[in-house]
Amino acid sequence: MSLRLGRHEFADDATLMMAIVNRTPDSFYDQGATWAEDKAFERVSLVVAQGAEMVDIGGIKAAPGVEIGAAEEKERVVDFVARVREAFPQLVISVDTWRAEVGGAVCEAGADVLNDAWGGADPELVDVAAQHGAAIICTHTGGATPRTRPYRVEYDDVVRSAIDDTVAYAERALAAGVAQESIVIDPAHDFGKNTFHSLELTRRLDEMVATGWPVLVSLSNKDFVGETLGLPVGERLTGTLAATAVCALAGARIYRVHEVVETRQTVDMVWTIAGRRPPQRAIRGLQ
């Protein structure tokens, strides 16, 4: 399915790199490296130069911690979105928020996508997306409360649950007036899931792709990679790329990433193996 992400349209065979930009002092991977606005802006400039089509700007880390209210969240992201919008008109700007109030403010400032990492915790977020012509990412959390860790969560079939919940969310967004080509589903690895759940979702991602909704995967350096390989944050790139390759083969369209260049190469390689993209330049044996 072709994608329309706010102001931007993409062909139905395009894959997109969504670079993570944290406006937080405490996110797990960068530990506040882009907390200062200028540092965050430098990060945006870098990932654009690396070829990212999208940025995903977040004002609150996913893990539990000090409560950040809507006013504080807006303070962290709204003006920053406006600055990025002005500097990079061709860039797709996504904002990682579950709050409709924040979603409305960032759309006013120029955001194209609302990335609801907490699976519809605020039911009015779809209305905000519809009002502003924004796209929405519909994630699966198994009903987890925002900013909580999974604790003894079990599913009869985690893939079935992810499909049912994200498709229901997508249909709710559609009914609210979000354009069909502006709705994306995300199994949300690690959110409301243990490592075995995330591995199974990776292994069976083709079933989510088969729903026809474009699929986003957010795999980058997550705990399921770390637990699988026994590696801490900072040493998970290879595992992340392996998981990325599996998801690319299944047909995932958007990749939420820390490392843009490495992920782009991985996805392009797999997309080409799958016969969905020609080689960059082929002459070997064809002279």
Partner: peptide, 8 residues
């Protein structure tokens, strides 16, 4: 045998 870039 085409690619994104044409070598010929």
């Amino acid at each position: 045998y085409g690619g994104l870039e044409d070598p010929v």
